[in-house]
Design a protein around this nucleic acid. Structure first.
Lengths: 195, 195
DNA sequence: GCTTGCTATGCAACGAGTTGCATAAGATGA
DNA sequence: TCATCTTATGCAACTCGTTGCATAGCAAGC
């Protein structure tokens, strides 16, 4: 069997980067980690419970003032081992799912091509927005004096560099999508006037 | 509610392009359509049955020689209408799922960085292979005299053009991934020697 | 006092997708 | 003859992911 159930592993990585509650994890899955892995809070709570039963994470009750108490999770030795084992196992490249591509091919059988143009423009805007968010995050987190400083390299440098290269992947993806959607719009424009 | 259950719609598009059996559809989902939407034969048979019950497709028993008989499905009026309605509904941009990205960020907490390098190289190879397949398909299906011929445009031209622009999207995606994985490998190389 | 909103956790039901297995007809080759 | 491969269809069980709903504490504004 090859590479399944990655939500556990995404949570382990996130908790290694910084321990936190289910709620905080859900927040992270809306940004940062969420750039390449999505999860809702229900899913996270359910998986956290299972991970706790399996001894992958430890829990600590943290009383808070001005807001409800929380349970702070951190990675246990068993969790660390599980992550390492998964890291060393080969994973299949993701299978792609693009319903926009289905729609584009479906448009050949549609009476109203203008509808698809609007839809493609909506998607283009969404990717443009994401790109702007990613670039702002890069500016915020990965520029400045320490970014290219000389000197001895620490494990924290490695962590930063790896986060950065993943973010660059997100940026490259959004740019590619915007270019492709422009290609789609140009193609649709070539066919629109004739019909 | 916004855009769910797209397998039905992918099947409708494929059957509009050419009627066929569940088995044939499963084959198409390993190439062509499969470039942007995956499905196993069990899933396809189950969904075809539901679509038949809903009156979206018609079935015709086709006896064959030298092999088992098949059921050939084609799109009914209700199916055409269902597809049109889905095409005109907005769909959310796909949420991304890249377990390789999880692994890369996880590598910051791993003792053995060489394992990740091997994994990234495996993925790079897989994307290289897919790119070669796509380019071969483009060469086969979208070059030649009729590709850029002048003259009146038919619905078939539109169908071809739309298939082509979707394929170009796949090509752009694979190229972007290969470039990014090179970036990842270069980043890992910068950190490897130190540790 | 009431509503609205944010933090924080959770259950129940459902739909989507995967995996393993079963069946059956004919083709191919040892 | 027997095993294996390809075409062709399907069931059952399971996991994964989403949606709707519920609860509860505290804050802010009307």
């Amino acid at each position: 069997m090859i590479g399944v159930m990655a939500l556990e592993h995404a949570i382990l990585v996130s908790l290694l980067e910084k321990p936190g509650s289910g709620y905080e994890l859900a927040r992270r899955f809306e940004r940062s980690i969420g750039y390449f892995w999505t999860a809702t809070h229900q899913q996270i709570y359910r998986v956290l419970k299972r991970m706790q039963n399996d001894g992958w994470v430890d829990v600590r009750d943290v009383p808070q003032q001005g807001r409800p108490d929380k349970k702070e999770y951190s990675v246990a030795d068993l969790g660390r081992a599980a992550l390492a084992s998964w890291l060393h196992d080969p994973t299949e490249p993701e299978s792609v799912r693009h319903d926009l591509a289905v729609k584009i091919r479906g448009a050949a059988f549609d009476e109203d091509p203008a509808a698809l143009i609007r839809e493609v423009e909506r998607h283009r805007q969404a990717h443009q927005d994401r790109l702007a968010r990613y670039l702002a995050g890069e500016e915020r987190d990965f520029t400045g004096p320490e970014a290219s400083a000389a000197g001895p390299r620490t494990p924290l440098d490695a962590q930063r560099e790896l986060q950065h290269v993943v973010l660059r992947g997100g940026i490259a993806y959004e740019r590619m999508m915007i270019d492709w959607l422009d290609d789609v719009l140009a193609t649709l424009a070539r066919f629109g006037p004739d019909r």
